[in-house]
Design a protein around this nucleic acid. Sequence first.
DNA 1: AAAAACACTAGCTTTTTACTAGGTTAAATA
DNA 2: TATTTAACCTAGTAAAAAGCTAGTGTTTTT
Lengths: 137, 137
Amino acid sequence: MKFSTRTRYGLRFLVYLANAPVDNLVQLAEVANKEGISRGYLEQIVRDLKPMDILHTTRGVGGGYRLSCPPAQINLEQVFDHLEGGLAPVACLSDEKKCSRQCACTTRPFWQALDAHMRSFLQGMTLEQLIHTYNCK
Amino acid sequence: MKFSTRTRYGLRFLVYLANAPVDNLVQLAEVANKEGISRGYLEQIVRDLKPMDILHTTRGVGGGYRLSCPPAQINLEQVFDHLEGGLAPVACLSDEKKCSRQCACTTRPFWQALDAHMRSFLQGMTLEQLIHTYNCK
DNA sequence: AAAAACACTAGCTTTTTACTAGGTTAAATA
DNA sequence: TATTTAACCTAGTAAAAAGCTAGTGTTTTT
């Protein structure tokens, strides 16, 4: 029930961007260095975040990344969904077809409730909240 | 962030026992059959639950399992801890030594909060509550 | 003694995770 | 225009974990 390094690294990347001066371009290699993450691996992770349209990138000399909107507009449930590939604690909740015993399952409603409880934490939370409420800095 | 089949199967085993007539011995093979779980695998899972002392077993002909206490006294957080091998959403929370960047980590407090939120759901919940609140039956 | 049922161990296959290597493309600068 | 820089992309791979199987031992009843 651990979150993958994908999610942990991806989140740290976003926090790093959010903590940088506004409109400042940050290079991926810099984040990888500072955070002690493999550059190539971080590239892959960041690529998975791109479809969310929360990143603005510039290529070439002096290029890099910045958030394309204020951290207050970045929803963590969505971020987690992208990085983790679905948040559901058991597969049968996200892919309805997977389980043939669905109706008879004695535990499914419980898993649904746990899922809802998890989401209630992430749903309303934004990157800004994470930083202000929980960041040590 | 999925729970393992260990946890799902183990939980279903406990629910099965809880739904059986009180003091009735239930054979593991029966549960495996009814729930569509590999017998040998379920044996391993059940073995991991034994140190919790919530199971009473009798060997030999006519033997089987039953709960050694009422479902209302079986705490789900403990069950999950046993089956899943720790509930923490990231390893650094359970094993303090693992992460050298702990102090500098921008996301650790957030993970702690998520951990606490998850536990708050399971902590108070008993097997009885699971069955009465969430069981379809 | 035989059968039934739990208890335990070792190993094996598949999947996932985490990562590496090596390229391509776009933008700035010399 | 050539070079450099940094994002973009693909494929493969080693290690770990997950999920399971087979086989053997042990206890209890009949």
